[in-house]
């Protein structure tokens, strides 16, 4: 019973991590840019939820709890705008420079977001409301937390919609063509800047959604970005650079690892072992576990 509950928690955590990792890969695939501000985008999503809760609470009569799911469209919108800002300020002006330049500008953007949030909200942890209320439901003899189930359902809907777009639509093919040879994509009439902006908006909105999902149980502090980008990064490395499916698998593995180790030991140990595992994985497979760099597959 306990095992099943732990597994459900791990799947929920993995689903949230998967949103982060997938958002990261989206930007990566459409632009080849590595967005180091992505962790801060998750944090921004969490604080967007906190801020929206505060704003709605003023409109509603006191005592009415606001379900987090109501906040989702607002969080998606706000973080999509943040994504557009990252693209416009930290990527588009230097898109033709060596990739390291983009690493540095997005790190700079992350610093701005972290410290801006820190100044506005303070350094203390904040919590977002649960998606569909707290408590548990009995399901096939298993006691499941409502929040975990809601996280999984939300992530499945978002990821499913995205997978459909990328695999079945012209837009998805255009995304991938732009990643592989942007100049040639333009020379085929694909509007590269539009695709780039869209990728940053979508990718950052996915990170923002994850921020809302995570900020109930795990709270959110302005300085959480570095750890989150690392997990997204690790998921992408494990799953193969540029692979959405791989990123999802990678995110699940990380979540199971974390929940598993934390349940028998402590959270810092889980995190530390995760970083050791990354170094070991890279030692054995410099291209990731499933990765074949040539194959950019949705």
């Amino acid at each position: 019973m306990l095992g099943a509950q732990l597994a459900l928690n791990a799947v929920a955590l993995g689903a949230a991590y998967a949103l982060v990792a997938i958002g990261f890969v989206l930007v990566l695939n459409a632009t080849t840019a590595v967005n180091f501000a992505h962790g801060e985008s998750v944090v921004a999503g969490g604080f967007a939820a906190v801020a929206l809760t505060g704003a709605l609470a003023m409109l509603l009569p006191a005592g009415n709890a606001i379900p987090g799911i109501v906040l989702l469209p607002g969080v998606l919108l706000l973080t999509a705008l943040l994504g557009l800002a990252i693209a416009a300020l930290a990527y588009l002006p230097i898109r033709n420079r060596p990739p390291v330049s983009v690493f540095v500008t997005t790190i700079a953007f992350g610093i701005i977001v972290t410290n801006g949030l820190n100044a506005a909200f303070g350094a203390a942890p904040r919590a977002a409301p649960a998606l569909l209320g707290t408590g548990t439901i009995e399901f096939l003899g298993v006691t499941a937390s409502r929040q975990s189930l809601a996280i999984i359902a939300t992530a499945v809907v978002l990821i499913g919609a995205l997978a459909f777009v990328l695999q079945r639509t012209q837009l998805g093919r255009q995304f991938r063509a732009c990643a592989q040879d942007p100049e040639m994509a333009r020379a085929l009439g694909i509007r590269l800047t539009r695709i780039t902006l869209l990728a940053f908006a979508l990718g950052t909105a996915f990170a923002g959604a994850a921020g809302l999902l995570l900020a109930h149980q795990f709270f959110v502090t302005p300085s959480d970005g570095a750890g989150l980008i690392l997990k997204a990064y690790i998921a992408v490395v494990i799953g193969g650079w540029g692979s959405l499916r791989g990123a999802t698998i990678g995110a699940m593995l990380i979540a199971f690892f974390e929940v598993g180790v934390a349940s028998i030991s402590s959270q810092p140990l889980a995190e530390g072992l995760l970083y050791v595992a990354v170094l070991l994985v890279l030692l054995v497979r410099p291209d990731g576990i499933f990765g074949e760099p040539q194959r950019l597959r949705a």
């Binding site: 590595v34 690493f103 570095a226 490395v237 970083y275 890279l282 030692l283």
Partner: peptide, 28 residues
Amino acid sequence: VPVLRLASHYFALATLALSQLLLLIAVN
């Protein structure tokens, strides 16, 4: 040995992981 032969972003990741790991050790 594991880190230096990595391409750009992998290298950045690996060095970031190393930093976070040392920070965890120092705190705990």
